[in-house]
Design a protein around this nucleic acid. Structure first.
Length: 395
DNA sequence: TCTGGGGTCCTAGGACCC
DNA sequence: TCTGGGGTCCTAGGACCC
């Protein structure tokens, strides 16, 4: 009852087409029309394609394919290493244009955003607005996108996937049975290989099967995710477009696949030193600090092991991050050959906010580590006060 | 097809407190 | 000595997405 009273929303999902490759083509028009792929470390034996143009896809090339395989299928494939700085700049220009239509823009990734345009016009007018946005991005940034239109995020997102590149698609709730229900359940966003398998055990193979499945059964098999997926299959999705969502970053991490599988401790520690610097650099740039450190070890046989620790004082500096990573690694590595190493800092907060909390609480820092003294004086300097002092050693 | 690197959210058990 | 229930935090792992 409440739902039928609620005014129908109009949500857009804007999805940039092969974004990284398109940005490169916008910068260098000689790349236009070519089979082009972006691949990290093309010389690296373990390189994969991050994205590729539709010209490349015509050869059977696709994203996540190895560089070697792609070259075999398409000998003329042009491969460029990624330039994330460039893509981030292009991305903020895209979002800026989207925000010129409404403040209700929620970036979901570097090349995707939801927009709530309910206040600008109804579902029929939405198509014109979408066309205008698409043309605007093409004219000013030379970047193509597909736009999905629907009464909620799920339908808008599903719609934007239906026509690429440069598509505009409306998906109404009442079209679910006809358009989505016949499709295999793996086509749904939120359903991967593992969920597909579990659903198959319940004799659920199509989105329609899921939409009409018994809720209790699905919940027992998949938990609340199952309930949510069933709702989505029925075209129900109450998530709001939240412009702030992207500002609330939860973690910052860095990982790397090693050129060859590694069994040497000091070589691994060198990698951790480098990762710690990378993470510290990015934390600093984003003015964040966090109290949970996690290391990831991927063994040669593709086993993923994570070990984490919660620390008292928020981590920002590379020496501190390295020290914690090192001790976690030394404590937990059993000598298995290693394929990948990573460090992630989570539970992060803006450093500004940390200072506020500290000054409000007249905070006493409890610590056993002498290095903390330096951090404390740095904080006091920042605050221009003497408020933060060392507490007693763990009372 | 031998598989990158950046994330988010969820689950589940154990510790600890009331 | 055995009996509870609820809440929160920590840790590890899994699934999924771009």
């Amino acid at each position: 009852m409440k739902n039928s009273l609620r005014k129908a929303k109009v949500i857009l999902h804007v999805d940039m087409n092969s974004f990284f490759a398109s940005v490169e083509q916008a910068y260098d028009s000689s790349l236009k029309g070519l089979p082009l792929a972006i691949a990290g470390n093309p010389q690296h034996r373990r390189g994969i394609l991050v994205t590729c143009t539709y010209e490349a896809r015509a050869f059977g090339v696709y994203t996540t394919m190895t560089v070697g395989e792609a070259r075999r299928l398409c000998p003329d494939l042009v491969i460029i290493p990624p330039d994330f700085e460039k893509y981030r700049r292009a991305s903020s220009q895209v979002f800026e244009i989207l925000r010129s239509y409404t403040e209700l823009v929620e970036p979901v990734s570097i090349d995707e955003a939801y927009m709530d345009i309910t206040s600008i016009g109804g579902l029929t007018n939405a198509e014109n607005i979408a066309k205008e946005i698409q043309q605007h991005l093409l004219d000013t940034l030379d970047l193509p996108c597909s736009i999905g239109i629907g009464p909620n995020k799920f339908l808008a997102k599903t719609a934007s996937d239906m026509k690429k590149p440069l598509g505009i698609t409306i998906l109404r709730k009442r079209q679910m049975p006809e358009i989505l229900w016949p499709k295999p359940v793996i086509h749904m966003h939120g359903v991967g290989k593992s969920t597909e398998k579990k659903l198959a055990e319940l004799n659920i193979f199509t989105i329609g099967n899921l939409a009409n499945a018994d809720e209790i059964t699905v919940k027992m098999k998949l938990g609340k995710n199952g309930v949510r997926l069933k709702e989505r299959a029925n075209g129900i999705d109450h998530r709001e477009v939240d412009p702030e969502a992207a500002n609330e970053r939860k973690s910052v991490g860095s990982s790397t696949t090693l050129p060859t599988d590694e069994t040497d401790l000091s070589a691994c520690l060198k990698i951790f030193e480098w990762l710690a610097e990378k993470v510290a650099f990015r934390l600093e740039r984003q003015k964040l600090a966090g109290t949970v450190i996690m290391i990831q070890i991927r063994t040669a046989d593709w086993q993923n092991i994570t070990r984490s620790k919660t620390v008292l004082n928020p981590l920002v500096k590379s020496e501190h991050i390295y020290k914690e990573a090192k001790s976690l690694f030394e404590r937990h590595w059993d000598g298995e050959p290693i394929r990948l190493l990573g460090i992630t800092i989570s539970n992060v907060l803006p450093t500004e906010q940390l200072f506020e909390q500290l000054s409000i609480d007249n905070f006493e820092v409890h610590a056993k580590d002498e290095k903390i003294d330096g951090l404390i004086s740095a904080l006091n300097k920042e605050l221009g006060t003497d408020m933060i002092k060392r507490g007693n050693q763990l009372d």
